[in-house]
């Protein structure tokens, strides 16, 4: 017996139409934590974020997420968990090149190597919400257009290079972005990420990354600042 008590909740359309700003902000934080906890703490995450699988309820301004269907599950390996955390952290603080980390995550060298120099910019855009030291509004992301511009003709190589099982992770990530876009409220991704991976910090640092030639594919190739001067 899997279900012993039926929980009622609002459909996604009701949330968008009827919830107040505080409730939406609370739900946005709940959904981000749900995503991050699934990867970095439980290593078991919902991979089908279809609105039919969710209901939503509130207690005052506090939101709760109800899962009706947890049948499509992605279980990241420990290497995937730690590797992804390290890749996001490296993108935040520009501490190491992303290319060896992609290899550690299982990307194919043959297809990824020709575009290794594009990975810093790609990571900076993919993980932009984590890089911002303030609440981030996904309406500012413009992810698809920017990724298309960065990868250009290499976009298919990037997709082919990726291990098939990470498709589930990408589906979850897109699902999260979909709901946050609908909630239209900025939230602090970096703080949630830091909290979520805090207990893993030693393991993340100790993850063994084989040495690679990264002379032309580090974050130091990217500009840090935009300057405007009027004289």
């Amino acid at each position: 017996m899997l279900v012993s008590d039926w929980q009622q909740g609002d459909h996604w359309n009701d949330v968008c139409a009827n919830w107040n700003d505080a409730q939406k902000r609370s739900l946005a934080n709940v959904m981000l934590r749900f995503f991050l906890t699934g990867i970095f703490q439980q290593r078991r995450m919902q991979a089908d974020w279809h609105p039919g699988n969710f209901r939503f309820c509130t207690h005052g301004d506090k939101a709760r997420l109800l899962l009706y269907d947890f049948g499509c599950v992605f279980e990241p390996s420990e290497v995937e968990q730690l590797g992804l955390a390290r890749l996001i952290q490296a993108t935040i603080d520009r501490s190491e090149p992303p290319w060896p980390l992609f290899l550690k995550l299982g990307f194919g060298r043959e297809f990824l190597e020709p575009l290794a120099h594009k990975l810093p910019a790609l990571c900076r855009v993919l993980f932009e919400p984590f890089c911002c030291e303030y609440p981030y509004d996904v309406a500012d992301w413009n992810l698809a257009e920017r990724v298309t511009d960065i990868l250009g003709d290499d976009r298919w190589n990037f997709r082919i290079a990726g291990p098939a099982r990470l498709v589930f992770l990408m589906r979850s990530f897109h699902g999260l972005a979909y709901y946050l876009s609908g909630l239209a409220t900025p939230i602090f991704w970096q703080r949630a990420f830091t909290t979520s991976v805090g207990s893993l910090s030693g393991d993340i640092a100790n993850l063994q990354i084989p040495p690679e030639d990264t002379s032309k594919c580090g974050f130091d190739s990217m500009a840090r600042y935009l300057k405007i001067r009027v004289v």
Binding site: A223, K227, R229, V230, V231
Partner: peptide, 10 residues
Amino acid sequence: MELTQYASTI
């Protein structure tokens, strides 16, 4: 006058 922003502001 010189204005400095994060590069992503582009």
